[in-house]
């Protein structure tokens, strides 16, 4: 059931856009983002602080939106997964999740992307231990985590060594050998 819009005026800069909404006085940020601000990229997993799917950045800091009262972040700058890309250009961490298999079913992915993008902002060249520590509050039931660590490593290489993003749409192998036209 969607919460009915209550009587408190609330504003935030969500992904760089100023939003003014009427929210319920005790509303949870996750509910406001999903049901009122239209950020369906922010996922509801456990709703209890244990899975990390609902992670967003509040003034640049990763936070669990399911355990944040919206009223307490009134006026804040909030970044959701939708705010990571620069127009049509994916953030390196998004591109590398796609390249390295960091995302499979994808349900946990927004949370991982938000948390690891914050890690790379703060520390562009993290060790594997630092990467694992940053994602300790995010659960993934598909990948087994190694591909996620690989994705962060690869994104870090792009950011620190100036490596170019690969064009992931270019074919890696010829699916129909011998039928390549010509």
């Amino acid at each position: 059931m969607l919460p009915s819009a209550g009587d408190v005026s609330w504003s935030a800069e969500i992904n760089g856009v100023n939003k003014r909404l009427n929210i319920e006085n005790n509303a949870i940020l996750l509910d406001v983002l999903r049901d009122q601000a239209g950020s369906l990229g922010t996922k509801r997993g456990c709703d209890m602080g244990t899975c990390g799917c609902c992670s967003v950045l509040v003034n640049g800091e990763p936070r669990l939106s399911c355990l944040t009262l919206a009223a307490e972040v009134d006026g804040a700058a909030i970044t959701t997964v939708e705010g990571l890309a620069d127009g049509h250009h994916l953030h390196p961490i998004q591109a590398m999740f796609a390249e390295c298999g960091g995302s499979q079913c994808g349900f946990c992915t927004p949370g991982f992307l938000v948390v690891t993008s914050a890690l790379l902002d703060e520390n562009p060249n993290p060790s594997d231990k630092e990467i694992k520590c940053a994602i300790e509050g995010n659960l993934c039931r598909c990948t087994g985590y190694q591909q996620i660590v690989d994705s962060v490593r690869a994104a870090s290489d792009i950011l620190t060594k100036g490596l170019q993003l690969e064009d992931s749409t270019s074919p890696k192998s010829d699916p129909h050998p011998g039928f390549s036209g010509g």
Partner: peptide
């Protein structure tokens, strides 16, 4: 205590 995410709040 808990996870890095929970320790922020």
């Amino acid at each position: 205590i808990a996870s890095t995410l929970i320790r922020r709040s």
